[in-house]
Design a protein around this nucleic acid. Structure first.
Length: 801
RNA sequence: GGGCGCAUAGCUCAGCGGGAGAGCGCUCGCUUCACACGCGAGAGGUCCCUGGUUCGAUCCCAGGUGCGCCCACCA
């Protein structure tokens, strides 16, 4: 064994060994209780980033801990097909080759996607291995596997038969860059500097005008009404009369609607159902037409003056404003900053437009999910996220599930020439209503998150009744970032309750977002990302895991490499502590403590075991690893090993030391799996790999000994600080001398030590002299203060005071 | 517009009603027979501000300042 622990090589060797020996594989026939986590499936095109590394470190710590506690443990791996992202990557490649998906057609395009994935996709599972993740790799699933596709089809047909899937012309979020609709959740609002244009619409009878304000003058061409608030006295007389829409000259009514905000602008709102979500709702309720003047490319279209056809929205807006100015209908323009929806993927400004799409009504799905959150059957950690998830479910709206893409799960919908719609899991032979065999499948695919909702059970074989499904559903925990609580967590809960009649997991653990060292999100465009693989190469996977868990929090976290370096030091320290014991021989492992420090370390290890268990139970990983760090450095190395060093040739002392080391390795294994397994393999008489060794049982035998070294430690502290030796005897004296190795020469600065203790005594005396403190404070607080006073007086006496 | 969170040592953070802590960095002393990725000692802080509650506030309450996040159909 080298003095410097080198994780490179050691780690890869154990990763191979564990997997080859099948130690990550979960057996559905096992009698043991299961513990199941399904990994958040990474995009099949993605590479490991720091967020994955943190997310995976947390899951692996939980998984390894439960495996050691005897659970039949399944960590389910797999990939998400990531419709928009994957399609975009392959389209980019085609563009570089001078062609396009439209040119080569759907079938050839999909072949290209699969070819691309075979060559470049699916690299993250290998990177998870490098991190030491104990996923059951044999069970890797992909949302585009045939079996998974079947599950998605079943889900859609199920919802259709329930009457919750419907097709309708409604306002959608169109991304002209991705060339598809996206759901409300994929829209992010950003502040944009716009101009607010005030335009006068003349009354049709020539008796005056009404002024509206708009940020999108081009949409004036699609106006079908002007709306005012029913209680707005300025406009009471106008309701029911007609106005003339500028440019197009259309005569449209003035209507009244509660949703108009009288305080904003002029209090009169132009109604454009074709290009605004609020206007769309108002238009539907008032039975107004829904003309569209902007097409899917963002170009002007429809029943508008010829000179507008084909312009961009901005060009059209300029022309409309010029028209208003020429006709003296432009009241004013003022600068205006407001939030505007953008596509979260491409950053493109969202075009709201009316489109015929497939939708899922969510109210019935949400109801049992709401119950599961309110009752606590599904608990979020930290709980605040559960409250936010609940609020979203209670205000849930229809979900636009169709996407105008090719890569994904094509809708199981067919149309016959007579307009009949058939929804079936597989292609029907003929239309059930008219018998036509001339069926055309809907070209759209489903929102990627539609398939993700099935992840906890489609990966286990649903809709078939498989041994896996029976053994591993419902799962236990789901660990993810807060960004996908609505997109994924809530939808898994809804889908699980609907299809499996049970929640998919009982704990949702929300991990931090990892920011760069100055608090900005890590991003490709900023170039501020830190590659976890670089950290693994530099410090080891164990160190990287330790560092990420140490950083973890209920808040967003700034990445600090220092935490990872601390992990490397911990691994190295453990390595060298083990060297000390292994190099001095010994072939027995048995807790046979005969001295104070031996009882003490067993007590400390057991106390830390209990604390770590409590931390892991509450998903407080930072505290868990901090305790393990101090147990290793302070208790095990600085005190215990230093105390027994002079007696390492005693077989009983060695046997106990190995027993203590064995327990320490077990406690550290979920965090530092490789170095602990490596050391473990060198201990005498190993019955199994550490990865499947049993977690230490509670050991009450030494519980009274956690403070047994207090006297020796106090004496050491005083001696090291001042050179003063206070009187200790027996074990405490022996330990003091072993650890401190005091020099023979004389006494140090007793005066300074006395002054320090006297100040403490004075403080305690002052408090206890305060009658109000003694009368009002809790009795245990007062007692503790009296105890401290007594201890300090004893210390002063020991200093010869 | 609604909701949530954070401000503690140079840095990253813990503590959250009774003596201000850790890791890193810094200073000093140790190449002591596991480890210099080590051991020991030390310097360093109006615990954001102003009020309030309390015998006692970094911790609870109110207000303020600064930073961040989520949700949102005021055109």
């Amino acid at each position: 064994m080298e003095p410097l622990y080198k994780p490179q090589g050691v780690e890869a060797r154990w990763q191979r060994t564990w997997e080859e020996e099948g130690l990550f594989h979960a057996d559905p026939e096992s009698e043991r209780p299961s513990y199941v986590i399904a990994v958040p499936p990474p995009n099949v095109t993605g590479v490991l980033h720091m967020g994955h590394a943190l997310n995976a470190s947390i899951q692996d710590a939980l998984i390894r801990w439960h495996r050691m506690r005897g659970f039949n443990t399944l960590w389910q791996p797999g990939y998400d097909h990531a419709g928009i992202a994957t399609q975009a990557v392959v389209e980019k490649k085609l563009r570089a080759e001078g062609t396009s998906r439209l040119e080569i057609g759907r079938e050839a395009f999909l072949e290209q996607v699969w070819a691309w994935l075979r060559e470049y996709g699916g690299v993250i599972m290998g990177q998870f291995r490098s991190l030491g993740c104990s996923l059951d790799y044999e069970r890797e699933r992909f949302t585009m596997d045939d079996a998974y596709v079947r599950a998605v089809m079943r889900f859609f047909v199920h919802l259709y038969e329930r009457g919750w899937i419907f097709r309708d012309n409604r306002i959608i979020n169109w991304c002209s860059d991705c060339r598809t609709s996206i759901s409300d959740l994929e829209v992010e609002h950003r502040d944009v500097d716009d101009a607010l244009t005030y335009a006068r619409y003349p009354l049709a009878d020539g008796s005056g005008s009404v002024t509206i304000a708009t940020v999108r003058p081009a949409t004036i061409l699609a106006d079908v009404a002007v709306a005012v608030h029913p209680g707005d006295e300025r406009y009471t007389g106008l309701i029911g009369r007609d106005v003339i829409v500028p440019v197009v000259g259309r005569v449209v009514p003035v209507i009244s609607d509660e949703r108009v905000e009288p305080e904003f602008g002029t209090g009169a709102l132009k109604i454009t159902p074709g290009h605004d979500p609020l206007d769309f709702e108002i238009g539907r309720d008032h039975g107004l037409p829904e003309p569209s003047v902007i097409d899917l490319d963002g170009r002007m279209t429809g029943d508008i003056p010829a000179e507008y056809i084909g312009l961009t929205e901005d060009e059209a807006a300029e022309r409309v404003v010029a028209w208003l100015r020429e006709h003296d209908q432009l009241e004013k323009r003022e600068s205006y900053r407001h939030a505007v929806g953008h596509c979260e993927r491409s950053g493109t400004r969202i075009q709201p437009l009316v489109s015929l799409q497939w939708w899922c009504a969510m109210d019935e799905l949400a109801r049992p999910a709401i119950e599961s959150l309110e009752s606590g059957r599904v608990a979020f950690h930290p709980p605040v996220h559960g409250r936010v998830a609940l609020d979203w479910l209670k205000a849930i709206r229809p979900w636009n599930v169709s996407r105008q893409l090719w890569w994904g799960h094509q809708l199981p919908i067919w149309y016959c020439p007579d307009g009949h719609v058939i929804c079936a899991e597989t292609e029907p032979d003929a239309c059930a209503e008219c018998g036509s065999q001339d069926l055309v499948r809907d070209p759209d695919v489903l929102d990627t998150w539609f398939s993700s909702a099935l992840w906890p059970f489609a990966t286990l074989g649903w809709p078939d009744d498989t041994p896996e499904l029976r053994a591993f559903y419902p799962g236990d925990a789901n660990v993810t970032g807060r960004g996908i609580i609505f997109l994924w967590e809530n939808r898994m809960i809804m889908a699980g309750l609907e299809l499996m009649k049970d929640i998919p997991f009982s704990h949702v653990v929300i991990n931090s977002n990892v920011l760069d060292s100055v608090g900005r999100p890590m991003s490709k465009s900023l170039g501020n990302g830190v590659d976890p693989l670089d950290m693994i190469a530099a410090h080891g996977a164990d160190a990287t895991r330790y560092g990420l868990l140490k950083m973890s929090s209920t808040q967003d976290i700034k990445f600090s490499e220092g935490s990872i370096e601390a992990g490397r030091k911990l691994a190295n320290k453990l390595w060298n502590a083990s060297r000390l014991l292994l190099m001095s021989g010994g072939d027995e492992v048995a807790a046979r403590p005969s001295s104070l420090e031996e009882r003490w370390i067993l007590a400390r290890i057991d106390a830390t075991r209990a604390e770590v268990e409590a931390d892991l139970t509450t998903y407080d990983f930072a505290h868990a690893v901090d305790r393990l760090y101090h147990l290793t450095f302070d208790d095990f190395c600085d005190w215990y090993l230093e105390s027994i060093k002079p007696r390492l040739d005693d077989p009983d002392v060695k046997a106990t030391a190995f027993a203590a080391l064995e327990r320490l390795l077990k406690l550290l294994h979920p965090v530092l799996p490789h170095v602990t397994e490596e050391i473990w393999s060198n201990l005498p008489a190993r019955a199994s790999r550490l990865v499947v060794a049993l977690w230490p049982e509670a050991d009450a035998e030494y519980a009274g000994d956690v403070k047994a070294l207090d006297n020796a430690q106090t004496a050491a502290r005083i001696y090291r600080r001042s050179g003063v030796r206070i009187a200790v005897a027996g074990d405490a004296l022996r330990i003091f001398e072993a650890v401190v190795r005091p020099s023979a020469d004389g006494r140090g600065d007793v005066g300074a030590e006395r002054t320090r203790v006297e100040k403490e005594i004075a403080r305690a005396e002052r408090m206890l002299a305060n009658e109000k403190f003694v009368a009002n404070a809790a009795s245990d607080v007062v007692d503790a203060e009296r105890e401290k006073l007594a201890e300090y007086r004893a210390e002063l006496a020991a200093l010869g005071g």
